[in-house]
Nucleic acid binder design. Structure first.
Lengths: 349, 349
DNA sequence: TTGTAGGCGTTATCAG
DNA sequence: CTGATAACGCCTACAA
């Protein structure tokens, strides 16, 4: 098990040159040209010895790390895998490696991870879709900035507005989805959110509200519902929630949920309570996770470009690391409304 | 942006002690006790200055890294998120950080990642569920061993048998699932596999075959089918596959697929071809991904303890890193058969 | 009880 | 063109 690593020195010795020469050759630092013959010899020896540069030493020496920290709430939530894949793919192709953390939306967890990331001198961090931790979290993120570690946020509020973000047109997307329901004759439409990311949720709520208002519908408090968390364990609150919604007078005929996982739980709860979807109750989700088109009935929802969001956030982060001018602090992508079967017009019923 | 890191020396200077003292205090290396007063002072200064040890320097100095490499085919495949979560949770609680790689089952990708991992001097690597790359891959993994980096395999073949593995009783699980079909009166049962991990697939096939044999059913070649990959893009081969299966004479009445993602695609294909599941065709999957119980009809399948597999592999890896005796080279977990609606007895039809 | 010095593998700055 | 050498930040004998 105990094997010594091959170092620059080993290569140097075997090739009868100095470590400096080897270093230059390996790095391709062409400023002072090395004679082609020795260059070849060194390269050969290096290959023969299977030399691998020690990244830790390189970083210690001052080279910026190749590590990216990726902070998400929970990889098990179907929204995240695609984002993560987008980030890692782009990261790898840019020469970075990504360290994955699941925070479960817990601020202490996040704090711990951020400390680790600082110790590691990572090149940058991407923080994705977690609850907005407010002041406390802003302070946390600020400590990264203090160490010169850039941060970009994906699908989440901009905190103090200072952090570059990648997200979609949340307001517009919600407006369109709710408008779809309204045009289908629905007048009482519930809004179910999950306490995820304040900034984004505000936008989504605005979209919902503005749609109702645009069509002269009443925006009343008994239409707003809240689910503690998006974690699967919590989702079993859905039964109670659906019951509550059903008791409302006048009758609520449609639900707009700000996440597919929530919408799916609502549908499941409805089935258990013998409420037919969409005949008795229309449901619209948000995200368009893989599941959405496979469940029964297929979920009407709003697609988010998850993979692209991951990629782009990595691109933005990279340009921050390289200290290039970042043209736009926040990138806004276009969502897409996907009508399927879980919502229908009232007349069809 | 450019901020100098706080080093041991900074703390030492401000606390009027030497770096050695600070190092001892910070590391809690209690062998030589430091006077409580200076200890406190140092700790205070460290906190005040927000000192963070430089992990790269520590590693360079010889401390084993806190990094774990986690190699999976594709986080976007619903089987993996839970495994990954299991690994990262346990890793974090043991003080490791995990670097995630998606290989897409490409050997070159894998080779590249493994090189990186070596450069990083990671403490260990977990390789999960990828195709068995045979000789070539074994050679690759051997290079890790040569550098003293331990590897554990999860849900995949044991290669040359030298790598500790975590998996389930694949043969038994398949036997039980196929037996269930047989007891339901099915006589012609197709076996659809995905070319994932040779070792495991062999076990699964054995389970299938032994079940047929145990009940005196014919094991004929026209019952075996193969899907190129488990990647979603490839899954659209499913239509052709189902058509082919349907053409077989005598009629095939049930399909056993070695992955839920495949089973789900088969069901979708069947629907498109106006074949009713389970009335016209029973389908059983493998894995019990989240999706399985949500689709229509809910999928009969074999549950794998995904999260636990992740956790346990990390535990095994940790004891290898710590050079503890590893009691058992391979850990075998128990799967569970989950009957739902996608398979039914022939008489019910 | 605390300080000094050397070295981990690299890179960069000088001389030669 | 190439070689010696001094850092990078930390840890650890060994001194004091």
């Amino acid at each position: 098990m105990e094997k010594k690593r091959v170092t620059l020195r080993d290569v140097a010795k075997k090739a009868n040159v100095s470590v400096a020469t080897v270093s230059i050759v390996i790095n391709g630092n062409n400023q002072m040209r090395i004679r082609e013959k020795t260059r070849q010899r060194i390269l050969d020896v290096a290959r023969e010895l299977n030399y691998q540069p020690d990244l830790n030493a390189q970083i210690l020496k001052g080279k910026t790390s190749s590590m990216i920290g990726l902070l998400i709430p929970d990889i098990t939530n179907p929204f995240y895998p695609e984002v993560v894949r987008g980030v890692t793919d782009k990261a790898n192709s840019l020469g970075y490696n990504v360290i994955l953390f699941n925070s479960d939306n817990k601020l202490e967890q996040e704090a711990f991870f951020i400390d680790t990331l600082k110790s590691l001198k990572v090149a940058g961090v991407i923080i994705c879709g977690v609850d907005d931790g407010g002041e406390q979290e802003a302070a946390l993120l600020a400590t990264l900035d203090r160490d010169g570690i850039p941060v970009v946020a994906v699908d989440r509020g901009v905190l103090n507005g200072k952090i570059p973000s990648v997200m979609i047109e949340n307001r517009e997307a919600c407006f369109e989805a709710v408008e779809y329901l309204i045009k289908g004759g629905h007048k009482r439409i519930a809004f179910v959110e999950t306490g995820q990311s304040v900034g984004i949720m505000e936008d989504r709520f605005r979209g919902y509200k503005e749609a109702l208002e645009a069509y002269g519908l009443e925006v009343s408090k008994d239409l707003f519902y809240h689910l503690k968390s998006t974690n699967l364990e919590y989702l079993h609150q859905a039964n109670g929630l659906v019951k509550k919604i059903r008791r409302a007078k006048p009758k609520i005929t449609a639900i707009f949920a700000t996440a597919d996982v929530v919408a799916i739980e609502i549908i499941r709860a409805a089935k258990q309570l013998n409420i037919r979807v969409p005949e008795d109750l229309s449901v619209i989700g948000f995200d368009d996770i893989q599941l959405a088109e496979l469940i029964d009935p297929p979920l009407t929802t709003v697609w988010q470009p998850k993979y692209e969001m991951g990629q782009i956030s990595m691109i933005v982060l990279n340009s921050m690391i390289k200290e290039e001018l970042v043209a736009q602090k926040t990138v806004i992508l276009a969502p897409k409304f996907i009508p399927r079967k879980s919502a229908q017009s009232l007349k069809e019923a």
